[in-house]
Design a protein around this nucleic acid. Structure first.
Length: 543
RNA sequence: GCCCCCGUAGCUCAGCCCGGAUAGAGCAGUGGCCUUCUAAUCCACCGGUCGCAGGUUCAAAUCCUGCCGGGGGCACCA
């Protein structure tokens, strides 16, 4: 049993005996940030005193007294502090037990949960129009969506990653017209696409090709390639056009009409989205008979709900206003809007040579995602996109992220992993073989660096669960930076192999290093970032 | 005008779910550590009215209200 749970159980049992019955969840046991406050601490007395009509400090004293008489596992001392905290001091054995748990679970099992209960989830992300390359802004949604999917998988959900392809309608037509015009030596239409890539692609297009078909494939191939370079793949590229062809769009419309959720006005067909929380009603079929973007998208969500009970969409901040109408449409179709979760990623700005780079489709002045990956590398790109909460807008500094200097956190973390491999290689070189865990004396690990590593490794399962629930991969990034920092400190102060290092200590440390490797590997995998076994700094140019 | 996100150290950001005991990290700045498993490392110092004002509470960066900044959105575009 996890230490925290055993402490909570003990505290609850004692409180009950003292005549205080705590509500479920009110007894919290946490690791204080200040080591003076013990290894673990509970605010149980503070949290329950009021309801029980007792003085917190007095209740805490009674609690501590009882826990001292019958200490929970590993506990060596119980103290009352401050307004009524009860602090526990534990023998290092709790951390030594933890090490065994980590290495037994391994990369596959440590921080893995079955809490998802095999409930399928469809994560839709990127879903850019097939009218051009992905730009730097798409990178954030792509890395975020994929990492959220990885977190969900680790928590026991079967996940389908999906990309909605908006391959028909006005934008698609404009794109095809632009390609055709340029291929014919003319100018792209005023309202068409003017990026440099359009001209390039137009020269590639074989004469006689259908610009819609060819353009769609060209754009998709381009998008797919850059996503693959980031290690991001999709289970489905869901075509809007296919739903028109299959009749799914018409079926959806019929369902909405059947539900009484539509009406005609000004020659258009409207959705009564304001009945379900939207600001106003929205057009489904324009007066010219053409569908709006909304209707096929509703059809797509209807299809997704037929395949999974829970949906996660990752949308850019510029689509925020669209959330209410899709939720309304789902409600009209009889679904729980809350089962369609929309994660909004705030904007990404680029900086290069210290200058802010504007991302503008208008002027065609945009930095493609491909350029970002080429300049900084896939690992650095992913790590950087996942460095902070997607609730905050981000400035992506290309020069900084491309640099192999210590300001760049991705190398710092990867280097920790590489160093571990280097220790393992060293052990092999000098003929040291790691003995089985049961044969190693883990109790030799008492250095504060060693203990700090173990304490932090203990947090990973909580981090994974929390990051998954909150759809917040940056929590993993924050945690892994911390673990890497602790490892570098350990590496500096605690030699694993060498003169004067006792064989038994070497063995214990080899196991600690293995546990750390597991933590780094799990976290980096959740982020989709590689865990290199060696890294060599590029030599500076001469002169 | 309405809706959403953000406002924490010089800079970039964690922490806010679920209120607690001196508010954390990286970078920048200053000063230290390499004959030993890769110094892309490590250590110390410096640095903060947690946007502002109220409220709730024994206790507020954290919860509530209002305001002020910054960003995004409010189409028969997508």
């Amino acid at each position: 049993m996890d230490v925290r749970d055993s402490l909570i159980d003990s505290v609850r049992a004692v409180l009950t005996r003292l005549g205080v019955t705590p509500d479920p969840g009110v007894v919290q046991v946490e690791r204080p940030s200040n080591p003076d406050h013990g290894d673990w601490s509970t605010n149980a007395a503070l949290a329950t005193a009021k309801a029980a009509g007792r003085n917190p400090r007095e209740l805490a004293t009674a609690l501590a007294g009882a826990l001292t008489t019958e200490p929970p596992p590993h506990v060596t001392a119980v103290e009352v502090a401050g307004p009524g905290f009860v602090n526990f001091r534990l023998a290092h054995t709790w951390l030594h037990d933890l090490l065994a748990d980590v290495v037994t679970a391994g990369v596959d099992g440590w921080g893995r949960f079955t809490t998802g209960h095999d409930q399928p989830i469809i994560v839709e992300f990127v879903s850019a129009n097939p009218t051009g390359p992905l730009h730097a802004g798409h990178g954030r949604g792509a890395c975020f969506g994929d990492s959220v999917a990885r977190l969900l998988e680790r928590c026991g959900h079967p996940v389908s990653r999906e990309f909605y392809v908006n391959d028909r309608g006005a934008q698609m037509r404009l794109f095809a017209d632009s390609l055709a015009a340029l291929a014919a030596g003319a100018d792209a239409p005023e309202a068409g696409y003017h990026g440099a890539y359009v001209a390039d692609w137009a020269t590639e297009m074989p004469s006689g090709a259908d610009p819609v078909e060819w353009g769609r494939e060209r754009a998709l191939a381009d998008q797919r390639a850059v996503l693959e370079s980031l290690g991001i793949g999709f289970d489905a590229w869901f075509s809007e056009r296919s739903m028109v062809e299959s009749g799914a769009v018409e079926d959806t419309l019929a369902d909405l009409q059947w539900a009484g959720a539509t009406y005609e006005d000004d020659g258009a067909l409207w959705l009564r989205s304001s009945d379900h929380g939207d600001d106003k009603d929205r057009v489904l079929v324009k007066s010219d008979g053409e569908y709006t973007y909304l209707l096929p998208d509703v059809a797509y969500h209807r299809d997704k709900f037929a395949r999974a009970p829970r949906l996660v969409n990752v949308w850019g901040a510029d689509h925020h206003g669209y959330v209410a109408r899709v939720h309304a449409a789902m409600a009209a179709l009889g679904h729980q809007p809350a089962d369609l979760e929309v994660a909004i990623t705030q904007m990404v700005g680029l900086r290069r040579a210290g200058e802010e780079v504007r991302l503008s489709k208008r002027t065609g002045e945009m930095i493609e995602l491909r350029e970002v990956v080429a300049e900084v590398g896939a690992d650095a790109a992913r790590f950087t996109y996942l460095l902070q909460s997607v609730d905050s807008s981000q400035v992506f500094d290309l020069d900084l992220v491309a640099s192999q200097i210590n300001e760049n956190p991705v190398f710092y973390v990867q280097y920790a992993h590489a160093r571990i491999h280097s220790i393992v290689s060293r052990a092999a070189e000098v003929g040291i073989e790691r003995v089985p865990l049961a044969a190693a004396d883990i109790s030799l690990l008492v250095h504060h660096r060693e203990l700090a590593l173990l304490r932090t490794l203990h947090e990973l399962p909580d981090i994974v669960r929390w990051a998954c629930r909150e759809r917040a991969p940056h929590q993993v990034t924050t945690w892994v930076r911390e673990l890497a920092a602790l490892f570098h400190g350990f590496y500096h102060d605690c030699r694993v192999i060498g003169e004067g290092i006792d064989d038994a200590l070497t063995q214990a440390r080899l196991w600690l290093v293995e546990a750390t490797r597991i933590g780094l590997a799990v976290a980096l995998d959740l982020l989709g970032v590689g865990a290199p076994t060696e890294m060599w700094r590029q030599e500076e140019d001469d002169r």
